[in-house]
Amino acid sequence: MLNAIANTGVYQINSFLSLLIASLYFGKKFAGCRIKNIPVIYAGAGVTLLALLAIIFTENRTIFNSRSYSYTAFVITAYAITYYYNKLAHPAIAGITASRTFWFVTGLFFYYSGCFIIFCTYKLFVQIGKGNFQILWSIHNFIILVMCIILSIGFRCKSYQKT
């Protein structure tokens, strides 16, 4: 029982830290951009962090619940789409596929958007007693593998690219 609570707690901390770090990362990227509503975005990020904390504190600590994960995935996917929109609106970089930030964002986007469905449906499968959630985690691991490949491409790109 204690192990279940400790593990669940770690998963919830993981989801919160993932959202916090992603918010800081994307906040730094958006700071140099000409998106009009930057203060709104920062305010929104603050609200989402507080909402995530609220979700975490209302979850059952003895059973793993992926609600916080699905919320984090949704927000990070929104950050990534905003990044793509900004790049399309201001296409100043020559050869975006040589940009380190592009690959990092694409990796995060691929993982969190791909796993969003998994995070959303995990609790449902557990409740209806389906055994399919085991294959879900296999697919999740595959998506992590692809994300790592994409991030490794990003690490090979030169860091002085203005992104």
């Binding site: 975006i96 596929t97 697919i139 998506i143």
Partner: peptide, 25 residues
């Protein structure tokens, strides 16, 4: 199959973004 299609959709999104970006650039 559903998840594979979803992953293909995401991959298509990324590829379309790259193509669109190059044109706009």
């Amino acid at each position: 199959i559903i998840i594979t299609l979803f992953i293909l959709l995401i991959t298509s999104f990324i590829v379309i973004f790259i193509i669109l970006y190059q044109k706009r650039h």
